[in-house]
Structure formats: structure tokens, C-alpha cells
């Protein structure tokens, strides 16, 4: 047994996590956009993400490209299975991505592009959640093909996952604005972060309670002895993180709430990992079965080992350049 497929699964989990937390907060600002007053508030909210959204979204391309390169079989089965939500996500990302530029081009068109920014961000978040839900609830596979229908992905569970991700991204967006703005907009973002933090935790609870009963092997992974000893750490840490979040947010901390929110997402990822490992398509295709030959995985991994740290380095530098509050003079 080669370790390569598992290393690659780790790389992809990292890429998807990087995507979720980075594009998560800028999609979240899109979701919250109509709540901000037209004019300076919206402009500030937009400017808080304008220099970085494009790099954030690149992690999604790495997720797709990496999955195709390292696990072509999983890529070829999952994407037809979630055809509708993926197409919806792509079109939604198109509308909200161009809105960053287009809304400044003609003041008379601005409200339409603001609407596109909101609707696109919300639909993209919902679709991503629904894709996750569809994968968790299981995909019909026959040989090397997806064997289900167009609407198999749609279920109360996948809709719940979609709604949960909308809430979670909006929460990240509000926390980002708490960190990046001040005054009235920050106060508004702080109120939103409180409410959305609570909403997100309710969603996490709902998804967690529903997952073990999806008919896959999830129940045993979480509740069978001795798994339960390790698995129980995840909800335990989640409770601690949540308590810390509300405490620090109320105490007026600006950075800690965002960082804790990232931690909560990391715990959710760990939970997903516990549920799914060692499968890529739960119950159907394992990490090893889907793996591209070592000559492919090794070729890309050699590059990734050098390039991803470099990417993280200059991405961090770009964030550093735009550090601090949006719209405050002379802070640097």
C-alpha cells in the first residue's frame, strides 16, 4: 500500500479547507450585502475583500484540478452526480465575481450588480453545501459511472447542508468585517456575527444529528467503541470554541472571533473526515480505488510540496499589504 493517495487526500482536504475559509468570508459578505446601507457601508464592505477575492477563489480551482489529477475516477463520478448544483454554483460565481468590477462602471446599473453580488454569493454557498450533502448521503455508482438521475442530489439533508453553509459563510463574513472595519459598520457586523454564530451552531448541530442516520456507515464511525472516545473530542472542542467565541465577541475583541470561526470550520472538517474516511465517494469509491497512478500523483505532489508553501507565502504577503482597517488613514 502506497501512502501517496492518502497524502493527496490530505492535500485536497487542505485545499478545500483553504477555499472554504477564504472564499467563505468573501461569499459571506456577499450574502450579507443587502443588509448594508447603499453607499459608504457597501463600498467599504466590498473594498474589504476586493484585493483578495480572486486569490481566494483560486483554491476552488485547485480543488477541482487537484481532484481530476489525483483522483480522476472520483472527479468523473461526483461531478455528473451533482450536475445541477455545480452548474448553478458556476453561474452564481460568474455573476458575483464580475460584480466586483461591474458595480463601479455605471452608477445607474449598480443596484443590479449589487443584487447579482448578493444572489450569486448566496446561491454559490447554498450549492456548495448541497454538493457536500449529496456526497454525504451517497451517490449511485455503476462500474466507473454515476448511475443516478438529475435530481438525486436534492433531499432535505442536502438542502439543510446548503442552508447551513449559507449561514456559516455569512458568519465568517460578519467576523471578517468586525476585524476590518470600525464605527457603525463594525457595530452592525458585530450584531450579525452574534446572531449568525448562533445560527451556524444550530445548523452544525442539525447536520451532525442527521448524518449518523443517513444509512451509510457513519453511525458506527461515531458511536462504536473505541471510536467514540476520539470522535467525542470534536463536539467537546466545538462547545468550548463556541463559548469562547461569544465571550470574546461581547468583550469587544476584533480578531479573535474570526480566528475562532476558522477553528469551528476546522472542527467541522475533522468531523467530516471521521464520517467519510477512507472513502472519497462514501460507500462506493475509496481513496485508493480512485487514485491516479503513482506516476501522476507523484509528479504533481513534487511540485505541490514546493509550490504550495510559496503560494501561502505570497498570499500571506498580499494579505499583509492590505492589513488593518479599511478606510482608516495613516495606520501603517
Amino acid at each position: 500500500m502506497s501512502a501517496l493517495p492518502y497524502v493527496w487526500a490530505g492535500v485536497l482536504v487542505f485545499a478545500v479547507y483553504a477555499y472554504v475559509v477564504m472564499d467563505g468570508f468573501d461569499l459571506g459578505i456577499g450574502i450579507l450585502f443587502p443588509r448594508y446601507a447603499p453607499g459608504p457601508s457597501r463600498d467599504l464592505a466590498m473594498n474589504a475583500i476586493a484585493p483578495v477575492w480572486d486569490g481566494n477563489e483560486t483554491w476552488l480551482v485547485l480543488g477541482g484540478g487537484g481532484l481530476m489529477a489525483a483522483f480522476p475516477l472520483a472527479y468523473a463520478i461526483i461531478l455528473p452526480a451533482v450536475y445541477a448544483p455545480v452548474v448553478a454554483m458556476l453561474l452564481a460565481l460568474t455573476c458575483r465575481g464580475v460584480a466586483f468590477e461591474f458595480r463601479w462602471r455605471n452608477p445607474r446599473h449598480r443596484r443590479y450588480w449589487d443584487l447579482a453580488f448578493f444572489a450569486g454569493s448566496t446561491l454559490a454557498a447554498f450549492a456548495q453545501g448541497a454538493v457536500l450533502g449529496a456526497i454525504l448521503q451517497g451517490i449511485a455508482v455503476e462500474g466507473r459511472h454515476y448511475a443516478g438521475g438529475t435530481w438525486d442530489w436534492l433531499s432535505p439533508f442536502s438542502a439543510l447542508c446548503g442552508a447551513s453553509l449559507v449561514a456559516g459563510y455569512a458568519w465568517l463574513g460578519a467576523c471578517w468585517l468586525v476585524m476590518k472595519t470600525e464605527g457603525a459598520l463594525q457595530a452592525q457586523a458585530r450584531r450579525q456575527a452574534l446572531a449568525l454564530g448562533a445560527a451556524t451552531l444550530v445548523c452544525i448541530l442539525a447536520v451532525s444529528l442527521a448524518t449518523p442516520f443517513l444509512g451509510q456507515r457513519y453511525y458506527a464511525r461515531w458511536f462504536a467503541w473505541p471510536n467514540v472516545v476520539f470522535a467525542a473530542q470534536v463536539p467537546l472542542l466545538l462547545v468550548i470554541a463556541s463559548a469562547l467565541f461569544f465571550f470574546l465577541l461581547r468583550r469587544g475583541h476584533e480578531r479573535a472571533p474570526f480566528l475562532i470561526a476558522l477553528g469551528v470550520f476546522a472542527l467541522c472538517f475533522t468531523g467530516l473526515g471521521i464520517s467519510v474516511y477512507p472513502d472519497l465517494v462514501p460507500g462506493a469509491i475509496s481513496i485508493e480505488a480512485a487514485a491516479a497512478p503513482p506516476a501522476s500523483q507523484g509528479f504533481v505532489l513534487a511540485g505541490a510540496a514546493v509550490l504550495i508553501p510559496i503560494i501561502l507565502g505570497y498570499t500571506g504577503w498580499a494579505y499583509w499589504i492590505f492589513r488593518g482597517k479599511v478606510g482608516r488613514e495613516g495606520y501603517h
Binding site: A50, P51, V52, D54, G55, E57, T58, V61, L62, G65, G66, M68, A69, A70, F71, P72, L73, Y75, A76, A292, P293, A295, S296, F299, V300, G303, A304, L307, I308, I311, Y314, T315, W317, A318, I321, F322
Partner: peptide
Amino acid sequence: GAVVGPLMAYEVMTAFFLEAGFLG
């Protein structure tokens, strides 16, 4: 995927991130 995918993965890692990272 095992042939074309790695080329596209390299495109993302060497080009897309470079463009996006420095575009801001």
C-alpha cells in the same frame, strides 16, 4: 485525468495563484 489533470494542476499552482496573488 491522470495525464491531463496534472498539467492543469500545475497551471493552477504555477499560474493562477501567481496572477491572483499579485493582482490585488
